[in-house]
């Protein structure tokens, strides 16, 4: 049972108009696995990640999440999204809600929890990321790092089976990157299945079970961090790493 991948994509193709962004991506993510995706800008990393929860709808191919083909039009993708948390580069916290309401809105609205249960859980999550004192504030005045920590626990409140991160630290001031990476590290240590698009090579090396190198809409190489970072096989991987690891 545990060998069945949590997410499996089959030959994903996605275009924006004439621009062919994903050119047949077949990948898988096992339960409790931590997969990082690296690659040059515009290579389709975000698009691939956003296909996993159908924020982008691929023209061709299938996505199996916990055994269900969520590209099937008869499937209610909203139900499956509840089990897939997503964290965005630009945080996308809800500015009209308080920090606590940001967390409780979805679980209560989607009837996963009563308001009381959700409130309790929100406080627990906020404690965990050091934001408990901000619970009743609007997120407007939070720093970038605080917003991103809020966005992470907002996703966790739905008790997802997998977390998708799209460059969670690249919009942050350098001094705030650490606090967000720490939250993700703790999450991953706790066994959270994660797919992380990142430009932080050190971070990818440290926490990943597997690293994917994407270029030009394809996964060109996949391996353990040491395979990818120490003995890359594909010349394009070598070329990319030599540029970013200078």
């Amino acid at each position: 049972m545990n060998n069945e991948p949590m997410i499996r994509t089959v030959n994903l193709h996605k275009s924006f108009g004439a621009l062919h962004v994903l050119k047949g991506v077949s990948e898988h993510v096992s339960p409790q696995e931590v997969v990082s995706i690296i690659g040059p800008s515009g290579s389709g990393k975000s698009t691939f990640l956003r296909c996993l929860n159908m924020l982008e709808v691929p023209e061709e191919g299938q996505i199996f999440f916990e055994g269900v083909d969520i590209t099937d039009k008869k499937v209610d993708v909203n139900l499956h999204r509840q089990k897939m948390g997503m964290v965005f580069q630009l945080f996308n916290v809800f500015p009209h809600l308080t920090v606590k309401q940001n967390i409780t809105l979805a679980p209560v609205l989607l009837k996963k929890k009563s308001q009381q249960e959700a409130d309790d859980m929100a406080m627990e999550l906020l404690n965990r990321v050091g934001l408990a004192d901000k619970a009743d504030n609007k997120p407007g005045r939070l720093s970038g790092g605080q917003k991103q920590r809020l966005a992470i626990v907002r996703a966790l409140a739905m008790e997802p089976d997998v977390m998708l991160f799209d460059e969670p630290t690249s919009a942050l001031d350098p001094e705030m990157v650490g606090e967000v990476l720490d939250v993700i590290k703790n999450l991953v240590k706790g066994g959270m299945t994660s797919v992380i698009v990142t430009h932080e090579m050190g971070f990818a090396k440290e926490i990943s079970d597997r690293v994917l190198f994407m270029d030009d809409g394809m996964v060109l190489e996949s391996g353990t961090p040491s395979e990818i970072f120490n003995t890359p096989q594909n010349p394009r991987t070598r070329d990319f790493l030599s540029k970013v690891l200078m």
Partner: peptide
């Protein structure tokens, strides 16, 4: 309203 707001809400499972 920033489209990211819609994406964040949809990613949580809201219809």
């Amino acid at each position: 309203v920033d489209h990211g707001q819609t994406e964040a809400a949809r990613s949580l499972g809201l219809n």
